[in-house]
Simulated assay, not measured.
Amino acid sequence: MVTRKAALTFGLSSIAVLTLTAFIFGEQQPAKADICDRFDITCRPSSPALGRSGTAPASSTTLRLCNQTPSTVYAAYSFWAGNEGWRSAGWYQIQGQNCSNLSLGSYSGDTYVYAEGSNGGRWSGRDANFCITRGNAFNIANSDRSSCNDSGQARVGMTRFRLNRGATNTYNFRVQ
């Protein structure tokens, strides 16, 4: 099995930067953030569509997920992956009043977003349903057609969000 290691950096504030190390193609690496341990989840980016850093090249499409709440939000998204159908990936930890940038290469078109907050909040939608895995990082191919029967999996409703190629596309999770 070929394993590729990528360091992904997310700006958490002007002072702090959280660096997570992810192994793409099925390897799982525990997150190095205390908050992930506190909520008993593994937070690691796991999407093969992501670039090598949280800062996208000028020509790259960026999905910018912004947390407009005071609590930590754990986000997931689904995107069209060609022969693999709709792929869902998560969890992306976003501290309160901060954003995370996900570089998606030349991707454009629909994505779907979902999040759960450390305070029990949930940002779901009725636009489409996809499988996620509770408690661990996930990257699920054909997640719209999957039975979601694997351990910890659940089907959740997500909100549609259209991405423009080569642009930074910002989605805000707001206080409910």
Rank of each mutant, 00 (worst) to 15 (best):
residue 41 I to P: 01
residue 33 A to N: 03
residue 53 S to Y: 04
residue 42 T to F: 05
residue 77 Y to H: 11
residue 19 T to G: 00
residue 96 G to N: 11
residue 101 N to F: 01
residue 46 S to H: 11
residue 95 Q to T: 10
residue 67 N to G: 09
residue 84 E to Y: 14
residue 55 T to D: 13
residue 64 R to E: 14
residue 33 A to H: 05
residue 96 G to I: 14
residue 33 A to C: 02
residue 42 T to L: 08
residue 78 S to F: 06
residue 48 P to T: 05
residue 102 L to Q: 03
residue 99 C to W: 02
residue 29 Q to K: 13
residue 95 Q to N: 08
residue 68 Q to P: 00
residue 14 S to G: 13
residue 94 I to V: 15
residue 40 D to E: 15
residue 76 A to T: 05
residue 30 P to H: 09
residue 56 A to R: 01
residue 100 S to M: 11
residue 76 A to V: 07
residue 62 T to E: 10
residue 96 G to P: 10
residue 79 F to R: 11
residue 63 L to E: 05
residue 95 Q to R: 11
residue 86 W to M: 08
residue 34 D to R: 13
residue 25 F to L: 05
residue 72 T to D: 12
residue 100 S to R: 12
residue 59 S to R: 09
residue 49 A to I: 10
residue 45 P to S: 11
residue 15 I to K: 04
residue 89 A to W: 01
residue 81 A to W: 12
residue 61 T to L: 08
residue 75 A to N: 10
residue 48 P to E: 07
residue 90 G to N: 01
residue 61 T to D: 01
residue 91 W to S: 05
residue 47 S to W: 06
residue 25 F to A: 04
residue 90 G to E: 01
residue 15 I to T: 05
residue 79 F to W: 14
residue 25 F to P: 00
residue 82 G to R: 14
residue 26 G to A: 09
residue 66 C to V: 13
residue 62 T to C: 03
residue 90 G to A: 06
residue 34 D to H: 08
residue 69 T to V: 14
residue 68 Q to W: 05
residue 85 G to P: 07
residue 14 S to M: 06
residue 68 Q to T: 09
residue 70 P to A: 11
residue 76 A to H: 02
residue 87 R to M: 12
residue 14 S to Q: 09
residue 97 Q to M: 13
residue 58 A to E: 10
residue 18 L to K: 02
residue 59 S to P: 03
residue 60 S to R: 07
residue 24 I to C: 06
residue 30 P to M: 12
residue 24 I to D: 08
residue 103 S to W: 06
residue 42 T to K: 09
residue 69 T to Y: 03
residue 102 L to G: 03
residue 80 W to P: 07
residue 54 G to A: 04
residue 77 Y to K: 06
residue 16 A to C: 01
residue 58 A to T: 11
residue 86 W to K: 08
residue 26 G to E: 13
residue 27 E to A: 14
residue 45 P to L: 14
residue 91 W to C: 03
residue 81 A to K: 10
residue 67 N to H: 06
residue 76 A to E: 02
